[in-house]
Every structure is written in C-alpha cells, then in structure tokens.
Simulated scan of single mutants.
Amino acid sequence: MGRLIPQPVIAVVADFLAINETHASLDSLFAYADAPGEPPLGSKHVKALEWLRRINKESEEPLTILGRLIENHMESELPKNAEYEWEKKKVDFVNKMPDLLGRYGLQYITGGYITDGSSIASLSLKEAIEKRNTPAVEMEFTRAMENLHTDPREAVSAACNILESTFKIFIADENLPIPAKQDLQGLWKVVREHLGLDTKAIEDEDLKRILSGLYSLTDGIGSLRTHASSAHGAGRKIYNLKPRHARLAINAAHTLTMFILESWDEKKK
C-alpha cells in the first residue's frame, strides 16, 4: 500500500472542495479519481472528508487519487483580481498547497501527480526534458507516470521507450552511425562509446562497477519490456506486474536517462 494522505492535508482539501464543488460535481470528481465506494451521506464537507479518509483506508495508492482530485484546481488559470470569496479561497488554496505538502515531504507535479520524493531522478528528468525539444521522450515520460498504478505493463513499456527515444535522439543529433541492430542494447552501445562511458575507458574501479550496473540496468529494462510489458504479446508465462515493479523500472530508466543527458551536456561544454 502506498503512502497515506496526511490528515492536515485531508482537512484542507475537504474544506476547499466543499466550497468549490456541488454535491453532483463532488460525486463526479471522486468517481473520476477512482475513489472507493459510494458517495458518503451528509453535507458536502462531511462527504469530502469521509471520502478522503476512506481513500486512506481502502486504496492502494492514496496519493495518486489525491493528485487527480486537486489537479484541475491546481492547474487552472487563477483570477488576477479575486473579487468573490470563492475566488479568494481558490487562490489561497493553490498558493498554500505546495507548502502544506512540503511539510510532509510531498510535492505536486503538473499532470496530477504527487510524489513523496522517492525518485529525485524523475523530478530532475521532468525539468530536463521540458528544456529540450524532445517530444518523444516527454510523451513516454507522461505515459509511464499516467499508467504506473492503473496499467503497470504499459508503464514498463513506456519506461523502456524513454531510454530508446533518448538514445535515438542522441545518435541523430550527434550524427553518429545508426547501428545495424536498432534494439535497446545496440543503441546504448553507440551512445556509451561516444560519451566515453565504456568500462574499458574508465580507470576508477568504483566508477567501473557503477557503469557495469548501468549495462545490467538496460538489459533488465529491455528484457522486462520484451517479456512482461504491453509492447509484446504474452506467452504461456504471465508476469504479474505490480505498480512497485513498474516504479522500479521507471525510476531506473529515469536515473540512466538523466545521467546520459548530464553527460551529454558536459561533453558539449
């Protein structure tokens, strides 16, 4: 089970939703976010509060549902001159929510994601790809995050594609020869040799061991996509992928991708 929504966050979100939603829109919003069970009885505040508490008790990934609940409010355009009370409440909510989440080591990310900081590489990579004209990488990043909890097989496929797209962009931008076999390993070999990441070129034994781990990482992610993701049909053996497995593949792919982008920038300098 994923991390629970802190009780002070529940209180603030319940108060805000009760002011900004009708009973009907509350029901629709919680249903869209995959909140468990039927709408609780009572006032809008009681309903929102009880439903949020139920999410903590019954849902595997409470923070995922919370992100969907506040996404529209966090990302909609704020009124420049808030005149009405509900407008002031919305501005106050959007401005204070990052600090409130931050008290508990949480962060809201555009797209309805709330992270507990377990993957700094994912946050850094998101910022890095936004600065580059790499729509293919950005698309796969979004697909991986969106499917992490709902479709782990699809998320694993996207995690591998993040690496593959990054390798192809690197090879194209550096005008490098395209390998005869354009699978993940073939592309990675061209990239690592051009960046000087081959273990034979590294003298430090500790760095060699880390780089050797990167080779195993690409092998593992590529194999997992082949055997267990949605990219290929399943055989007799069906992999029972869980969100934690997909998260492992995604975090690993993000770590390697971020290292490649940083190494690329360093080489340009």
Rank of each mutant, 00 (worst) to 15 (best):
Y239V: 15
E130L: 10
F167E: 04
F170Q: 01
G2D: 02
T22A: 03
A228V: 05
R103P: 15
D116G: 09
Y215M: 12
A253Q: 03
G186R: 05
V191M: 04
K267M: 08
T142R: 14
L29D: 08
G112A: 04
H23W: 13
G213F: 09
Y239A: 15
I114W: 02
L125Y: 06
A31F: 01
L197I: 09
A24F: 15
I129M: 04
I260Y: 00
E83Q: 08
E61S: 14
P40N: 12
A18S: 13
L101Y: 11
A159H: 09
S76R: 14
V12C: 11
K47E: 03
K131F: 00
I238G: 03
K90W: 14
C160Q: 14
L49H: 05
L106M: 08
E154Q: 14
V12S: 15
S124I: 06
Y215W: 13
D183H: 14
D204V: 02
E174N: 14
T255S: 05
S59Y: 05
E50C: 08
V91L: 00
T166N: 01
T22D: 08
M258N: 11
E130Y: 12
H149E: 04
L101A: 04
S76F: 00
V91N: 05
Y84L: 08
K269E: 11
G220R: 11
V12Y: 11
L187T: 03
F93A: 08
V91I: 00
S165L: 11
Y113R: 15
L4N: 15
I171G: 00
L207Q: 15
A155R: 01
I114A: 06
S118K: 05
K57D: 13
G213H: 11
L163S: 10
P243H: 14
E127W: 06
S230N: 10
V13Q: 06
L261C: 09
G42S: 10
R103A: 15
F16P: 12
L197R: 13
S118T: 08
E140P: 02
S263W: 01
K237Y: 12
N161F: 03
E154T: 12
L29C: 03
I178A: 01
I260S: 01
M97G: 01
